[in-house]
Amino acid sequence: MLGVESSCDETGVAIYDLALGLRAHRLYSQAAMHAEYGGVVPELASRDHVRKLLPLLEATLGDAGLRPRDLGGVAYTAGPGLAGALLVGAATARALAWALDIPALGVHHMEGHLLAPLLEPDPPQPPFVALLVSGGHSMLVQVAAIGRYALLGDTLDDAAGEAFDKTAMLLGLPYPGGPALANLATQGRRDTYRFTRPLLDRPGLDFSFSGLKTQVLLAWQRSDQSATTRADIAAGFEVAMVETLVEKCRRALRASGGTRLVVAGGVGANRALRAALATAGARDGFRTWFPRPEFCTDNGAMIAHVGALRLGAGEHGDAAIRIFPRWSLDGLGALAA
């Protein structure tokens, strides 16, 4: 199964085999191009996918030692994401499938993230709770089986990754801001600034990070704005974010009675979050699975993987090119037995 990811600012291509596992994968990031603008410019993202997708596809096939006619299917991200970027991947995948007379499947981007830890050795088996934390999403999902998802909590405003990026921008850090802020936080004192842990004072599993971002802005404006203060504020923000995410995961696991947690999405690569969940798991008796850091961000491997699972279960799409810039995860169908 060939997988194509083009939902935002990364072009990913991978080949996954149900019997042999991941055969090859390549990823191209547009971060340097968008840095000039401080964020993703949708039209530029779409045009760059057009330029990069076919060369990446050819290179990935070469890495796997395969030719196009060796493929058994093509999976592509059908949503959610930027409409123009999604169309590039969808049109390319459908055209290739038509030319080779093989099936093509549109894959849900967040299902790709959710199941990315299954690409690792010793993968988790459902049922489990999943925390999906990325630039566009922060949600807790109950996974009864592959394809059977129930939303437990969602973000009411900014997603976790979005809050990282916006906070980094407030502190004058370069784009992409999330990794830069996390690196700076390692140099700061974690107890100098204590910011609110949003929504922990009330029941429920929803997230809200807009107020936390505002607190950081006010603290920075009222400070001496020195390099030391910038690092201390970054550390205080990261502590508040991590403690909030960890406590929501603990609540979700208690509510479900489960002991298995999956964390995926770009923020899942955050070292402080990984360490805090390991500590909480040792205390509470749950285990956490993460994808390797390169599969936390958008990538073609997770799309090829889900496509192979669904094609293997007998799913087939028609010849229409369909994308879903907004697409609910809990509306997906379960895999056939």
Rank of each mutant, 00 (worst) to 15 (best):
L53A: 12
C296Q: 09
T229M: 09
V13E: 03
G333D: 12
R94H: 05
A182T: 06
Q125R: 15
A180M: 14
Q125W: 06
W289V: 05
R251H: 09
A234W: 08
A234D: 08
Y193E: 05
F324Y: 15
V263W: 07
P203W: 01
R310H: 11
L181K: 06
A234Y: 03
G112N: 06
V133R: 03
P127G: 04
P291W: 01
T214H: 09
M169Q: 10
R189T: 12
G266W: 09
P42N: 13
L212S: 05
A308C: 08
L71N: 04
R287N: 02
A234M: 08
V129T: 14
G89K: 06
M241S: 02
D48Q: 14
A14I: 08
L18I: 08
D63E: 14
L200Y: 03
A31Q: 04
V267Q: 07
D70T: 06
G62M: 03
L173V: 07
L335M: 12
G314Y: 11
E247H: 12
L118G: 13
G153L: 06
D206R: 01
G178C: 11
L309M: 12
T92L: 06
H108M: 12
G12M: 09
G81E: 08
G38K: 13
L119D: 10
R260H: 11
L100A: 11
H25S: 14
L277S: 02
A319R: 09
V74K: 06
E247W: 00
D298H: 11
G153M: 08
L170M: 10
Q187T: 12
E111K: 01
L181S: 07
P198N: 06
R189V: 09
Y193D: 03
L118R: 15
P293S: 12
A272T: 12
T167Q: 00
C296K: 01
S208M: 05
L86I: 01
H25R: 12
R287F: 02
A231I: 10
H305T: 04
N270C: 01
G161D: 07
G21I: 06
L54N: 05
G300P: 15
A144Y: 02
K166S: 10
H316V: 06
A272L: 13
A93Y: 04
A320Y: 02
D206K: 00
P80A: 13
L181D: 05
N183L: 14
R26F: 02
A93M: 05
E43P: 04
G266T: 10
R51K: 13
A308T: 07
L332I: 14
A334K: 10
L156Q: 14
A32Q: 14
A301E: 10
A264N: 03
